[in-house]
């Protein structure tokens, strides 16, 4: 019985040298999971640093302004852009995961929802990146 169930999940063998595909492996389901993990871990480590840098507000104005000046450096500006892009994917794909779990048609539309996530991600990036990069790369006031 378990074998039978497993075999129904296997798609037809292809002639390529890649391992036989499944419904999951190599498809949107797998890549959304990979991206969710990578973005999640990145955001986590930034969060640890961000709580500590904000804690400088309690030390002195000089300490806080000094740590904030490092965030205004162009290389850090690129990092912040990447961070916000990661947050947007994690947020939109998180909503997709919730819909898969709780919406009766979620599993049926998971692939369509993946592409909606990608579309929102591209739109969000196009909206945010130019504004932030402009702020980072123009001269301070």
């Amino acid at each position: 019985m378990p074998n039978e169930a497993a075999s129904t999940l296997t798609t037809a063998r292809s002639s390529s040298k890649r391992p036989a595909g499944t419904l999951y492996r190599g498809n949107t389901g797998m890549w959304s999971w990979v991206l969710h993990r990578i973005t999640g871990v990145s955001i986590y480590f930034f969060l640890l640093v961000h709580v500590l840098d904000t804690a400088m507000i309690r030390v002195s104005p000089q300490a806080y302004d000094a740590v904030m000046s490092t965030y205004k450096n162009p290389i850090m500006g690129l990092g912040e852009t990447a961070l916000v892009i990661a947050i947007m994917f994690h947020a939109f794909n998180g909503i997709r995961i919730i819909l898969i779990d709780f919406w009766s048609k979620g599993a049926k539309y998971q692939r369509l929802m993946f592409w909606i996530v990608i579309a929102l991600w591209v739109i969000g990036t196009a909206g945010f990146a130019p504004i932030h990069l402009h702020n980072v790369f123009t001269e301070p006031q």
């Binding site: 507000i57 104005p61 806080y64 302004d65 904030m68 965030y71 205004k72 500006g77 912040e80 916000v84 947050i87 947020a91 998180g94 909503i95 919730i98 945010f128 504004i131 932030h132 702020n135 980072v136 301070p140 006031q141």
Partner: peptide, 27 residues
């Protein structure tokens, strides 16, 4: 996750998008 989406997007909008964004963030 749902609450964080609202809280973090709000946080990013107020701190990084409005006005001159990160340039304005200081003590």
């Amino acid at each position: 996750g749902v609450l964080l989406l609202i809280l973090i997007f709000g946080h990013l909008f107020v701190n990084l998008v409005l006005g001159e964004g990160i340039k304005e963030i200081d003590f």
